[in-house]
Design a protein around this nucleic acid. Sequence first.
DNA 1: CATAGCTTTCATTATTTATTGAAACTTGAG
DNA 2: CTCAAGTTTCAATAAATAATGAAAGCTATG
Lengths: 181, 181
Amino acid sequence: MTLSDKNFAFVMHCGEMGSRWGFNRTIGQMCGLLIITKEPMTANEIADALSISRGNVSMGIKELQSWRLIKVQHIPGDRKEYYAPAGTIWDMANRVFEERKKREIDPTLSLLRDNILEEAHNDDERFAQQQMQEIHDLLETVTKWSSELQRLSPEQLQSLMKLGSGIGKVLDFKDKILKKP
Amino acid sequence: MTLSDKNFAFVMHCGEMGSRWGFNRTIGQMCGLLIITKEPMTANEIADALSISRGNVSMGIKELQSWRLIKVQHIPGDRKEYYAPAGTIWDMANRVFEERKKREIDPTLSLLRDNILEEAHNDDERFAQQQMQEIHDLLETVTKWSSELQRLSPEQLQSLMKLGSGIGKVLDFKDKILKKP
DNA sequence: CATAGCTTTCATTATTTATTGAAACTTGAG
DNA sequence: CTCAAGTTTCAATAAATAATGAAAGCTATG
């Protein structure tokens, strides 16, 4: 199976963006490829489509699974494994977001927590601790807020997203609302 | 000037996280160092504190400036340049966020836009285009939403962040509210 | 239980990215 | 104008990361 020029261009773009999205070129390509291909693909088809080695595809699959971005499917009477995106675009974006939070924020949050608990022994440490406290509070707020968003129903989210500039208005009325349970 | 163990540990952590935050180890370290150091530092002080070459510091400074994370200061009667964080922690986080959006989302958004405008020539392209449309819509929503947030006053933001789980409640009343201007 | 058909692993190799440090450049002061 | 104190650049090198492919590992089927 060979890609049309336009689709190929998209897949290559995903490759170039791959490392910015948190993985590497090949994995970006694989992800893009699976998204725009209607039918699930075998590892060999993926290797052929991207002109990369079979082993590389195997590694990529493992990685994409660790991000929970793809799922395996089987076709009766066929021993091969077929791969397809795990869920909707929205689901996938969510997973990437979550996973990146886990890698980019959580470790720092934990280090900062530890540090802040210890006592500062001189001015330098005191100043540093203040700064770390600020970073900590910021990251914690962001974390709490994002987990809040994930708790919302899809409809509520939709509604929130559509709100756009209305958000300011809503905020102005917040107190009123919360007083009427 | 030498760092305390605790502060050194923080700086090294910033280094390890550097590449996850969008830059590299050295630049992560430099950023962490400047944040927890009360006084502005010269390039040589930075190089000494981190045991890296003067040239590397120069590159790092250029990069941090391109992210708008540091600013130059001068001390009268001293020809050296002194570097310090550009703004509060919150400002810096915002800058990183913006800059990453520019690098991680905007190029894709533009590619998708172009692709969607062209006509699909077969079923594969049609399917691919549908998927791209979904990605496009998602990214555009996120983009619009985040620029919306940046438009809010700091107080409004604060208030929104504190809302936390109340956000669901507020949304349920959205329609009511918006009908009473 | 042997094997064909498929997948995974991992040592080696290739590619990419980061760092160094010497040379070139800039600039303010005398 | 010259020099000294500083900064930047960039070719060479080092380090980190990714890709290959041959060998080892699985596992349904006859």
